[in-house]
């Protein structure tokens, strides 16, 4: 690759799943560049391939056609270089580990020293506002706190890319607003590149510098919107005309994909 500028770059990406009901085209001809420091949201109805695309970046799925590079490498190589942290829809904390030991899990696997592990746990717990909760077990924490712990876990090994698959999907609106605000602050502070899958238009518009609208059957990109909103975003930015205008365009994009016609 001569062009190493984009952190993530996809070209003519195809992915066909072989199922019992025949082949399913999960991704078709997807092309996208994500620059360093971008906050990219993927939005679209179920089956539009947004999660699949994230999993392709993470090398959890392998494309059947086209190319995708992460930091100029294949996703498999990038994974070996610990290029990304992945946050799943369910917090997925191990119930037999305390919060601190959950965050240590990737560090143990990657062979960090004990002292380094402790130091990093402390640092990322602060980053997600969970200092003092290290010795608690997951079931002792609320859903929002558990999801924050799982973000801390993804941050612990200093990956530059954060892949988040509907991380706040199961949380209520108020907690979600709060976490969105915190996530923006965290992104601001760390300068990470974030790919964020969501169902929610306001969430996508509020968080992103770039919104990727997708539609199903076959999963494809229908619109890519560069957000003109400033980096500094208080929650009430959601009542400004600019915000509503972007939200409108996202909605139009979703409708253009005929997603809800059938």
């Amino acid at each position: 690759m001569t062009e190493t500028n984009p952190v993530i770059s996809a070209r003519n990406l195809d992915l066909v799943f072989q199922t019992n009901d025949g082949p399913v085209q999960a991704l078709k001809d997807v092309a996208l560049d994500i620059e360093k420091g971008d906050f990219v949201s993927f939005i679209g109805p179920s089956g539009c391939g947004k999660t699949t695309f994230l999993r392709v970046i993470a090398a959890l799925e392998h494309p059947t056609g086209g190319t995708v590079t992460v930091n100029g490498m294949t996703p498999d190589e990038a994974r070996r270089q610990r290029a990304y942290g992945y946050v799943f829809q369910a917090a997925g904390l191990f119930p037999w580990r305390t919060i601190a030991r959950n965050i240590k899990l990737p560090l143990e696997i990657m062979g960090f020293s004990r002292a380094e592990q402790d130091e990093r746990v402390e640092r990322v717990l602060k980053l997600v506002d969970l200092d003092g909760f290290g010795e608690k077990y997951p079931w002792q924490l609320s859903g929002g706190m558990q999801q924050r712990a799982s973000i801390a876990r993804a941050l612990a090994f200093d990956a530059d890319i954060l892949l988040m698959d509907e991380p706040f999907g199961a949380l209520d609106e108020i907690v979600r607003d709060h976490l969105n605000e915190q996530l923006l602050a965290l992104w601001e502070r760390t300068g990470k590149t974030i790919c964020f899958v969501t169902h929610s238009i306001p969430e996508a518009v509020y968080l992103s510098t770039k919104i990727v609208v997708m539609s199903p059957r076959p999963g494809r990109i229908t619109d890519v919107i560069e957000s003109p909103l400033p980096k500094e975003r208080p929650l009430d930015i959601r009542d400004t005309p600019e915000f509503l205008e972007i939200a409108h365009r996202v909605r139009e994009g979703l409708r253009a994909g005929h997603a809800y016609d059938d």
């Binding site: 993470a58 070996r80 610990r82 992945y86 829809q89 997925g92 899990l105 696997i109």
Partner: peptide
């Protein structure tokens, strides 16, 4: 769960690590 197994994959964990941890 599948996501717990996927999580270990994203850490590039070995089969033995996945088994023990």
């Amino acid at each position: 769960t599948v996501s717990q197994i996927d999580l270990l994959k994203t850490y590039n964990a070995s089969a033995l690590q996945g088994f023990l941890k």
